[in-house]
Write a protein that binds this DNA or RNA. Structure first.
Length: 365
DNA sequence: CACGCGTGGGG
DNA sequence: TCCCCAAGCGT
């Protein structure tokens, strides 16, 4: 028997009051949530797990305790602190957004969904979440959790993303004017801990009594999704090249696109095949030793990198590259895929044998 | 609307 | 091992 929407909302809020997760960005005291903290956490949580976010969130808040501090930070420092969290456009948008809040709004976050939506890196979800959680606006928050909860609750047959408007309507009908932020977090907590994708714990769910999918035993059927495409594989090569004094050859990737603005070691383009060792040695003007391969899976392709370690012949940086000391390397924004390369190269004997002039020692074991 | 865009954990 | 996925956004 379907309960009334009001009864469903009440049951969900009562469950949340007992079982809400204690998360660092959730206000505990009487003072309302800090909009800056809510915004920072929401951006970090975009397509990212709570467990992965916690450490980054703490470090950001310690380094930059308010939006003005973040806005004043150097862009490279923000990218460096974001390194490892992924989706690096978020870091650029985060920094742009902080500066926009300072310049356009006097350093205070706007309090309405519409005004938030106009800021960089804030889309439909984040605008509604910040408005509801930080400012109490009656906004409808729809994320992946809400989609799963609502499509199961109402047995929505339309596949996502086409079902988005319907899901938004169904959700809006449940939002309580008095506690919009708690309702949003309650639905997300339910999706994260009870109404999970693979094995939902319906016996513990406060909405089980009115859930259409549960009544039919078809929870796992929702949300319906369109078939996904296979992920192709690309190949490339990357070399950790040292100068006589130990400095390492790096370069900064283009500002936008994959790993935009992040630091990488000397490497080839990525395509159907990787270049051979001789080509890498010539391009880097270094004696190279092959040290193995690194595998990494991005969202839309898998990558196999042949990894080399070597010693520069002349100490001249190829076009677009620069030398950094090991100490300075620690301050570079290096994404995890290239940290894997560094670790693979560091695991082998660093000394490259002396070779006669004109010879290139390549691809040796 | 479809695609580009990271990473790590769990079943 | 492999596949799925997690509090999406910009173009």
């Amino acid at each position: 028997m379907p309960a009334s929407p009001a009864a469903e909302t009440a049951a969900l809020l009562a469950w949340y009051d007992r079982h809400r997760r204690a998360l660092p960005w959730r206000a505990t005291g009487r003072a309302g949530p800090d909009p800056y903290a809510v915004w920072l956490s929401e951006v970090m949580l975009q397509q990212t797990t709570v467990a992965a976010v916690k450490g980054f969130y703490a470090r950001f808040l310690a380094l930059w305790p308010d939006v003005a501090a973040l806005a004043a930070a150097p862009r490279e420092a923000v990218l460096k602190e974001w390194a490892g969290l992924g989706y690096y456009a978020r870091a650029r948008n985060l920094h742009d957004c902080a500066q926009a809040v300072v310049e356009r709004h006097g350093g205070r976050f706007p309090s309405t969904e519409a005004a938030l939506r106009a800021l960089p890196g804030i889309g439909d979800y984040t605008a509604a979440a910040v408005a509801a959680i930080a400012f109490g606006e009656v906004a409808t928050v729809v994320d992946g959790n809400v989609e799963r909860v609502m499509t199961r609750l109402r047995a929505v047959e339309t596949p996502v993303p086409a079902a988005r408007p319907e899901i938004k309507r169904l959700t809006a009908a449940l939002v309580p004017p008095g506690r919009p932020g708690d309702f949003a977090q309650a639905t997300m907590d339910l999706g994260a801990t009870i109404c999970t994708p693979r094995s939902p714990a319906c016996a513990l769910c406060p909405l089980a009594g009115s859930c259409a999918a549960h009544a039919a035993g078809t929870e796992l059927r929702y949300p319906r999704k369109l078939p996904k495409k296979a992920t192709p594989r690309r190949f490339g090569a990357m070399a950790v090249v040292e100068r006589q004094d130990g400095a390492v050859l790096v370069r900064t990737r283009p500002a936008k696109g994959l790993l935009g603005g992040m630091t990488e070691f000397f490497g080839s383009d990525w395509g159907a095949a990787s270049p051979d060792a001789a080509a890498m040695a010539q391009a880097s003007d270094a004696a190279l030793r092959a040290v193995g391969t690194v595998e990494h899976v991005f969202t839309h392709f898998a990558l196999t990198l042949d990894v080399y370690r070597g010693r520069s012949h002349g100490g001249l940086a190829p076009e677009g590259c620069r030398w950094v000391t090991r100490e300075a390397l620690a301050r570079e924004p290096i994404p995890n895929v290239f940290t894997k390369v560094w670790e693979a190269a560091s695991a082998v004997v660093p000394v490259v044998p002396v070779v006669p002039d004109g010879l290139r020692l390549v691809g040796l074991e």
